[in-house]
Amino acid sequence: AEKTGIVNVSSSLNAREGASTSSKVIGSLSGNTKVTIVGEEGAFYKIEYKGSHGYVAKEYIKDIKDE
């Protein structure tokens, strides 16, 4: 099942092309942005936001229960 997560940073969080800190940054998400978690790979979540996919470090995403 898809989960919703909240970007848990004070400034912004980089979204990357792949599940690695050396992957190209494809965008950034500001704190408290809601994202859909579609998968996980190592220390990263694969997320969907406004129709695009990217990878973000798990430690900066807070899971919330689907309402």
Rank of each mutant, 00 (worst) to 15 (best):
A1I: 13
A1W: 15
E2C: 15
E2A: 15
K3E: 02
K3V: 08
K3W: 15
K3A: 05
T4K: 08
T4V: 11
T4E: 06
T4W: 13
G5R: 04
G5N: 02
G5C: 09
I6R: 08
I6Y: 11
I6P: 02
I6D: 02
I6G: 02
V7N: 02
V7C: 06
V7P: 02
V7G: 03
N8K: 12
N8M: 12
N8L: 09
N8D: 09
N8E: 07
N8H: 10
V9C: 15
V9N: 07
V9I: 10
V9H: 10
V9E: 05
V9M: 07
S10D: 10
S10P: 11
S10R: 13
S10K: 13
S11Y: 09
S11W: 09
S11M: 10
S11G: 15
S11D: 12
S11C: 15
S11K: 12
S12Q: 10
L13H: 02
L13T: 09
L13D: 01
L13W: 03
N14M: 14
N14P: 15
N14F: 14
N14E: 15
N14K: 13
N14G: 07
A15G: 03
A15C: 15
A15D: 01
A15Y: 15
A15V: 15
A15F: 15
A15L: 15
R16M: 14
R16K: 05
R16D: 01
R16V: 06
E17L: 08
E17H: 06
G18P: 02
G18D: 09
G18A: 14
G18T: 12
G18Q: 13
G18E: 12
A19W: 05
A19M: 05
A19S: 07
A19F: 05
A19T: 07
A19R: 05
A19K: 05
S20K: 05
S20G: 05
S20C: 09
S20T: 10
T21F: 15
T21Q: 10
T21L: 14
T21S: 12
T21G: 08
T21D: 13
S22W: 07
S22R: 09
S22H: 11
S23F: 07
S23I: 03
S23K: 03
S23L: 04
S23V: 03
S23D: 05
K24T: 06
K24M: 08
K24S: 08
K24L: 07
V25M: 05
V25Q: 03
V25L: 06
V25K: 05
V25F: 06
V25W: 06
V25P: 05
V25N: 04
I26S: 03
I26T: 03
I26F: 04
I26H: 02
I26N: 02
I26V: 07
G27Y: 14
G27E: 03
G27Q: 04
S28M: 12
S28T: 14
S28I: 14
S28K: 12
S28D: 05
S28P: 07
L29I: 12
L29M: 05
L29W: 04
S30R: 14
S30H: 10
S30G: 09
S30N: 10
S30F: 12
G31N: 15
G31P: 15
G31D: 10
N32Y: 11
N32Q: 10
N32E: 07
N32M: 11
N32C: 15
N32L: 09
T33S: 10
T33M: 09
T33L: 06
K34D: 02
K34E: 06
K34L: 11
K34V: 13
K34T: 09
K34C: 12
K34W: 09
K34S: 06
V35R: 00
V35Q: 00
V35N: 01
V35T: 00
V35S: 00
V35I: 08
T36A: 07
T36F: 12
T36M: 09
T36C: 11
T36R: 14
T36D: 05
T36H: 10
T36W: 13
I37E: 00
I37P: 01
I37F: 02
I37C: 05
I37L: 03
I37V: 05
V38Q: 03
V38P: 00
V38K: 05
V38A: 03
V38D: 01
G39D: 06
G39I: 03
G39T: 02
G39E: 04
E40V: 06
E40P: 01
E40R: 03
E40K: 03
E41T: 07
E41C: 14
E41D: 09
E41I: 08
E41H: 07
G42H: 03
G42Y: 04
G42D: 05
G42N: 06
G42T: 01
A43S: 10
A43H: 08
A43R: 08
F44Q: 01
F44M: 03
F44E: 01
F44N: 01
F44V: 02
F44K: 01
F44I: 01
F44P: 00
Y45N: 01
Y45L: 04
Y45F: 08
Y45A: 02
Y45P: 01
Y45G: 01
K46C: 10
I47C: 05
I47P: 00
I47W: 00
I47A: 01
I47H: 01
I47E: 00
I47K: 01
I47Y: 02
E48W: 13
E48H: 10
E48I: 15
E48S: 09
E48V: 14
E48F: 11
Y49N: 00
Y49C: 07
Y49I: 07
Y49S: 01
Y49Q: 00
Y49R: 00
K50S: 07
K50Q: 12
K50W: 07
G51E: 06
G51M: 05
G51L: 04
S52R: 13
S52Q: 12
S52H: 10
S52L: 14
S52W: 14
H53D: 03
H53N: 05
H53A: 06
G54K: 03
Y55Q: 00
Y55R: 00
V56R: 00
V56W: 01
V56C: 04
A57L: 15
A57G: 08
A57R: 12
A57N: 08
K58R: 07
K58S: 03
K58A: 03
K58H: 01
K58E: 00
K58G: 01
K58M: 07
E59N: 08
E59Y: 08
E59Q: 11
E59K: 13
Y60R: 04
Y60D: 08
Y60S: 07
Y60M: 07
Y60A: 08
I61Q: 00
I61H: 04
I61L: 06
I61D: 00
I61K: 01
I61W: 02
K62L: 11
K62F: 09
K62A: 10
K62S: 13
D63K: 09
D63F: 14
D63W: 12
D63S: 09
D63T: 14
D63N: 09
D63I: 15
D63L: 15
I64W: 08
I64A: 08
I64Q: 06
I64G: 05
K65G: 08
K65D: 09
K65Q: 12
K65Y: 10
K65A: 10
D66S: 11
D66F: 14
D66C: 14
D66P: 11
E67S: 13
E67T: 13
E67C: 13
E67R: 12
E67H: 12
E67W: 12
E67P: 11
